Structure formats: structure tokens, C-alpha cells
Simulated assay, not measured.
Amino acid sequence: MDRLQAMTAFVRVVETGSFSQAARRIGVGQPAISKTIAQLEDRLQVRLLIRSTHGLSPTDAGIRFYERAKTAIQEADEAELEAKGAGAGLSGRLRICAATTFARLMVIPRLPEFLAAHPDLDVDVVLDDRVIDLVSEGIDIALRMGDLADSSAVARRLATGRRSVVATPAYLAEHGVPQVPADIAAHQAVVYTQLGRSWTFRREGTEASVAVSGRVQFSAAEGIRAAVKADMGLAVTSDWMFWPELMSGEVARVLEDWELPNIDLWAVFPTGRLASAKARAFADFVERVVG
């Protein structure tokens, strides 16, 4: 039994919670995974997994072995890359997670450049606006915006983006262009639930907070985009979310002499492990194309 392959199989089983999902991720049959784990437990003379009708979960010994095995696998991968040299390029599979709209507008159109630079690397892109568990989903790097909910997360700031109040020219022609933040109170707002119904502006040391009203609110950026483009009102959003429309004039900024809090773009890596060379390379790529 190859020890590194066995550790890899065990780590994938713990991360996915099942033999079948681990087998699909590794690219082998489920019986092979089951046999490998049984051989590993026999070799170690300890139960690593508890099997029940609810699935698989690691024992106390399994948890300790998982943490060590995960680190060993990553260090082995890094050692191979170091031995091959930087010129050898990256290979294997990289799993990325990013918010749907941001990825669609800012990352995916430039992804061919990254793939061309690393022809032996395959990329899985998981599009999800939720904050998902990176370890259980087998994610190598997540792109997240705003404040990080987990202060212990292993993260790197890639860029800082501007927030603006935007609307379509048609909406502004019908309802007027706000000249000061207080004017927004008379407008329909397209509300992003994560930002709430209070928008805070700053200019030359002056701060103005406005309670906005709007008949619709959305939990995802795709809804904000669709509603604004349908002339439904004003929205606060990062410029990244409306980059094509801002460039074409389909959507316009208002109150440009007032500042809104900026938004940070982060590369977040699974807690408890060093970022892999593949994840670091992708973070460098996003920093270059977005910054």
C-alpha cells in the first residue's frame, strides 16, 4: 500500500464525508477507496472512521491523523514543485470558489490566460454566493469580498474596489438625479440585504447616513444587477459588479463627489494548511487582472 496515496484517500473521505464522493474526486472506483481505508486502519491498528446510517465521520484518532496527513500531502506536493523548478509549471487540479457575479464578470473572461500559462493544470470553479466550508468542499482558494466573518481565516487582500451609487439613465431621467445624499430618501432603492437600508457617505470630513426605502431587496448581486438594469431604482454596489455597464454607459454613477466605504477582495485559503503553489499562483493572477 502506497502510504501517500492512502493518506490522500483518507483525507478526501473525511473532507467529502463519503467513499463515493472521495472516489469521484480522486478518479477511482468506490471499492478501491473502501479497500484502501480498511488497509490503512489495519496497518495503523486503530479505527479512523465511524460508519453509520448518517454517513462517515472521523474518530478522535482519525481527526488527529487527518490533520497530519493533510499537511504531509501538501508538503509532498510542494516538494515536487520545488524539485521540478518554477519553469516546470503547475499541474493537477485546482478548486476555486467565488461569488457568481464577480466570477462571471471579472474572472472567467480572463481565465483562458491562466489556463494558457499552466497547460497541465485543470480548474474546477465553484460558483456560490454563500460562505461555504473550504475544507469539506475541497476548495483550494476562495475569492470573497467585504469583511471576513472568520477572523482566523488564512487570507490575503488582493484588491480594494470602489463602491458607487448607480442607476440607469432612464431611471434618472424620470425621477431626477440626486445632488446630495439626503435626496436618496425620495428615490426607490434596490436594496442588497448584506448592506441593509442605511447608506453612509463621506466627503471632506463630513459624514451623512441615509435611510433608504425600496420595494425590493435581494440577497445576491445578480438580483441587484437585473433590478437596476430594469430601471427599478438606485443601488449601492462595487464597481466590479457593473463594470461592463459603467463602461458602456448603460448604467451611470451618481453622487460621485461623495465617498462610500470601499470593499476589499480577499483570497481565502483553507484554515490549518499552507496555501498550495497552485492557489498562490491563482491569487497572483487575480490580483493582476483585478487590481
Rank of each mutant, 00 (worst) to 15 (best):
W240M: 07
R162N: 13
R130M: 08
T237L: 02
F285K: 02
D128E: 15
A170K: 12
C97R: 07
D239F: 04
L234R: 01
V216A: 12
S152A: 13
R157V: 06
V123R: 06
V290Q: 07
H187T: 10
V180M: 08
D133E: 15
I96D: 03
R43Q: 14
D183I: 05
K278L: 07
E207A: 06
S276L: 06
M106D: 05
A167I: 03
R288M: 13
M7L: 14
D150M: 00
S209N: 04
S213V: 12
V126R: 08
D231S: 08
V154C: 10
D264R: 07
R47S: 14
R163S: 08
G161P: 00
S238R: 06
W258Y: 14
Q21K: 10
V251T: 07
S151T: 14
L40E: 02
E80L: 11
I96M: 05
H118S: 01
V14W: 01
Y171I: 09
D257N: 13
S57T: 13
A117C: 08
F218N: 02
G196M: 09
W266G: 08
S213E: 09
D231Y: 09
L148H: 02
D42I: 01
A32P: 00
A182G: 04
I139E: 07
I96S: 01
D133R: 12
V290N: 03
T160M: 13
M145N: 08
E204I: 00
L127N: 03
R25G: 04
D257P: 04
G89K: 01
G89T: 06
G138T: 03
A252S: 14
Q21Y: 00
S57E: 15
V126S: 02
L274I: 11
D239N: 11
L148I: 14
A9W: 02
A173Y: 04
S164M: 00
K278F: 02
Y171W: 13
E80I: 06
E259F: 00
Q217C: 10
V212A: 07
V216C: 09
T101E: 07
K84E: 12
S136L: 13
A235P: 02
R273I: 15
S91A: 11
T53H: 13
A173V: 05
R162M: 08
W266N: 00
A211I: 10
L44N: 08
D42F: 02
A153S: 15
A149E: 14
G89S: 14
L127K: 07
L265C: 11
G62R: 03
F285P: 07
S219H: 04
T100S: 11
D129W: 00
E75M: 13
A99Q: 10
I50M: 08
Q39D: 15
D183Q: 07
Q74F: 01
A230E: 12
R68W: 09
S164G: 01
V254E: 01
